[in-house]
Deep mutational scan, measured.
Amino acid sequence: DHWEIRVGDITIHLKDVDEEIIRWVEEALRNGDDLEEIKRWVEEVLR
């Protein structure tokens, strides 16, 4: 699977990601969370 999350001008590409993570990231972006923080979290989860 390949996911693209778009929020404003930001697009995040994710592969082999659980839908729950996608929802979490979308929510975090909508809440204005720091992008670097989100990326770190996702990388942590995917490890």
Score class of each variant (00 low, 15 high):
residue 45 V to Y: 15
residue 19 E to F: 12
residue 30 R to L: 12
residue 23 R to T: 05
residue 1 D to I: 13
residue 5 I to L: 11
residue 46 L to W: 03
residue 18 D to V: 14
residue 37 E to D: 13
residue 11 T to I: 12
residue 9 D to S: 10
residue 46 L to P: 00
residue 44 E to C: 07
residue 16 D to Q: 07
residue 34 D to E: 08
residue 2 H to S: 12
residue 18 D to S: 13
residue 11 T to K: 05
residue 26 E to I: 14
residue 34 D to Y: 12
residue 9 D to H: 06
residue 24 W to C: 03
residue 31 N to V: 05
residue 15 K to T: 12
residue 16 D to F: 09
residue 11 T to G: 03
residue 22 I to H: 05
residue 10 I to Y: 13
residue 46 L to N: 01
residue 39 K to D: 02
residue 6 R to V: 13
residue 16 D to G: 14
residue 21 I to Y: 03
residue 2 H to N: 12
residue 26 E to F: 12
residue 25 V to A: 04
residue 2 H to E: 09
residue 26 E to A: 10
residue 37 E to R: 08
residue 38 I to L: 07
residue 38 I to H: 00
residue 27 E to V: 09
residue 32 G to W: 11
residue 46 L to S: 01
residue 18 D to M: 14
residue 14 L to E: 01
residue 46 L to I: 12
residue 31 N to G: 05
residue 20 E to S: 08
residue 38 I to R: 00
residue 41 W to F: 11
residue 3 W to G: 05
residue 21 I to S: 02
residue 41 W to G: 01
residue 34 D to R: 06
residue 26 E to H: 13
residue 37 E to S: 14
residue 15 K to Y: 07
residue 10 I to H: 10
residue 42 V to G: 00
residue 43 E to Y: 06
residue 35 L to H: 06
residue 12 I to A: 01
residue 41 W to Y: 15
residue 17 V to M: 12
residue 24 W to A: 10
residue 18 D to E: 07
residue 43 E to Q: 08
residue 7 V to S: 02
residue 5 I to F: 13
residue 42 V to Q: 00
residue 35 L to D: 04
residue 34 D to G: 09
residue 3 W to Y: 12
residue 29 L to P: 00
residue 26 E to N: 12
residue 4 E to Q: 07
residue 33 D to F: 10
residue 16 D to H: 10
residue 20 E to Q: 12
residue 20 E to D: 09
residue 29 L to V: 08
residue 8 G to K: 02
residue 33 D to P: 11
residue 15 K to C: 08
residue 18 D to Y: 14
residue 9 D to V: 13
residue 23 R to P: 00
residue 8 G to L: 09
residue 17 V to H: 07
residue 15 K to G: 09
residue 46 L to G: 01
residue 27 E to C: 02
residue 34 D to W: 15
residue 42 V to R: 00
residue 30 R to D: 05
residue 16 D to N: 12
residue 17 V to L: 13
